[in-house]
Amino acid sequence: MQESVIYQDILQKGLQQGLQQGEERGKKQEPLQLILRQLTRRFGAIEPEIEQQIRTLSIAQLEELAEALLDFSSQSDLVNYLPQPHQED
C-alpha cells in the first residue's frame, strides 16, 4: 500500500500542507512577538486574556495593530481597539 501512487500522492500533499502551515506560523511569530514586547514595554504586563486575543489575530491584523499601538496612551486603548469576543447568550 505504501508503494501505491495514490498513497504517495496523499502523503506528498499532506507533507506540503504541513510545511505551508508551519511556514505561515513562522511568519506570524516575528511580528506577534515584537508587538507583545512593545506593548509590555509601553504598558507593563498585558493581561493573559488580552494576550491570547492578540495571538488569534491574522498577520494583516497584527500589522494594523503595530501601527495603531503608536497612538495608544493606555492599555484600555488596546482593549478598545481589539475586536470584541463574541458572547454566547
Rank of each mutant, 00 (worst) to 15 (best):
V5Q: 13
D71E: 13
E23A: 09
E88L: 15
Q61N: 06
D71G: 09
I35Y: 10
G22F: 07
D77I: 01
L69D: 01
F72W: 06
Q53T: 01
L32K: 02
P85M: 09
Q33T: 14
E49T: 12
L65A: 03
Q61D: 11
H86M: 09
R42S: 07
E51G: 02
G26P: 04
L19V: 03
L62R: 00
S4N: 15
G26S: 06
R55K: 15
Q16W: 06
Q75K: 10
G18F: 04
I46G: 01
G22V: 00
G26F: 07
R37A: 11
Y7K: 13
E47T: 01
I54E: 07
T56F: 10
G26R: 03
E67L: 09
S74Q: 04
V79D: 08
A60G: 05
G26H: 05
L11D: 07
E64M: 07
G44E: 02
E49C: 01
Q29F: 10
P48M: 03
G18P: 02
R25N: 11
Q87A: 14
Y81C: 03
K27C: 02
S73Q: 08
I59D: 08
R41A: 14
V5S: 09
L11Q: 12
D77C: 05
E47G: 06
K28G: 03
Q87K: 11
N80K: 15
Q2C: 04
Q2D: 13
T40P: 02
E49F: 08
S76T: 12
Q17N: 09
E23Q: 14
T56N: 10
N80L: 05
T56M: 10
L78S: 01
E51M: 01
Q20S: 13
N80R: 15
L78F: 06
S58N: 06
Q21V: 11
R25H: 10
I50G: 01
G14N: 12
M1C: 08
Q12K: 14
L32Q: 02
E51W: 02
P48Y: 06
K28W: 05
D89K: 08
L57Q: 00
R25F: 07
Q17C: 04
E47D: 15
F72N: 02
I54K: 08
Y7F: 13
E63D: 13
Q21R: 09
Q84A: 14
A45N: 08
Q17A: 14
V5P: 09
K28V: 00
A60E: 15
Q8R: 14
